[in-house]
Amino acid sequence: MKTENWGSVAYAEAWNRQTERFDAMVEAKRTGGSYENSLIFVEHPHVYTLGKSGKDTNMLLGEAQLKAMGATLYHIDRGGDITYHGPGQLVCYPILNLEDYHLGLKEYIRTLEEAVIRVCASYGVEAGRVKGATGVWLATGTPHERKICAIGVRSSHFVTMHGLALNVNTDLHYFGYIHPCGFMDKGVTSLQKELGREVSMEEVMKRLSNELSALL
C-alpha cells in the first residue's frame, strides 16, 4: 500500500484525480490487470461537499454568500450528508481494493473510525463512536457530543474512494454555515481546540498512516 501526500489541492482537481485512480482499479480488477492500493493525504481550500443522501437545506448559505467568503459547494458521489473541508483539516482518501484486506464496506468504515480513535488517543484525547452516526466523536453519550472526524465513502466492485476528514487545526467557524452531516444538535471540534495548541499536520498524517496500515 502506497502513501502519498498531495499537499493543498483544490477539491475539484483532487476529486478528478481520485476518480481516475478509482476507475483504473475497477478496470484492472475486471481485466486482471495490475493496480496499487494507496492512501492519499491532502488539504483543501474552503469547500463544502454534499453527499448523495444529503439535503440542500443543510447548507445555510446561498451561492453569492459562498462566493463572498471564498468557498465553493459540490454535490458529490459519496455517502453521507454535508461537510466542510478547509486548511488545517487532514483529509485521507484511501483508494483500496477491499477484497485484498478481506473487508466488507461496514467493516472498512469501522476500520477508518478505529484508526482515528487511536490517533486521538495518542494525543490524550478520548474519542469514540455514536450509534447511528458515522465518524469519530468526543464526549459520546453526553449532551456535549462533538465530532472531530467525518467519514463518507464510495464503493463499487469492492473498490473505495473518498474517505475521512480529521479536524486538526481547522477553523471551526466554517461549520457554523451548515448542519454538519445533517445534525442540528451536535457540535464539532478539532485536536487544536481540545489540546489548546496547534498540532503538526505532518505528525498527525504520519500517525494516521501508521494506524491505517496496521489495521488494514
Rank of each mutant, 00 (worst) to 15 (best):
K52D: 00
E4H: 14
S155N: 06
R118Q: 15
P180T: 13
H44C: 02
V47I: 10
E4L: 15
L90R: 04
T57K: 14
A68G: 09
Y177W: 07
S38M: 09
K2R: 15
A24I: 01
G80C: 02
H173L: 10
A133H: 08
D81M: 13
Y84C: 08
Q192V: 07
T189C: 08
S213F: 12
A214L: 12
N37R: 04
L172V: 09
G163L: 05
H179R: 12
E43S: 10
H46R: 15
D77Y: 03
G163A: 03
C120G: 02
I95S: 01
L191H: 03
M184K: 14
D77T: 09
K29C: 11
R30G: 05
R78A: 02
G176R: 12
M59Q: 13
R21A: 15
E145A: 14
K206W: 09
R17P: 07
G80E: 06
M184G: 10
L195I: 09
L39V: 09
R129V: 04
E194D: 09
D185Y: 11
A12I: 11
Y101P: 01
F175V: 10
H162C: 04
W15F: 14
T31I: 13
P143R: 10
N97A: 14
N58V: 08
T189G: 11
R110V: 00
P45R: 12
V199R: 11
G70T: 09
S209V: 02
N58P: 03
R154F: 04
M25H: 07
D56N: 14
R21W: 11
Q65P: 02
A115T: 11
I82D: 03
G86F: 03
V116E: 05
S156K: 14
A133D: 04
S8Y: 06
A115D: 00
P94L: 08
I40R: 05
T160M: 03
K2V: 14
E114K: 14
N37T: 05
L212T: 02
L216V: 04
V116S: 06
A28C: 08
T111Q: 01
E4K: 15
H179Q: 11
M205E: 12
I178V: 11
A28T: 08
V136Y: 04
K131C: 03
I40H: 04
G7P: 08
V159D: 03
V130Y: 08
Y11C: 01
L172W: 06
Y11H: 09
M184Y: 13
E20Q: 13
H85A: 05
T49K: 00
L96H: 04
Q192R: 15
A121D: 12
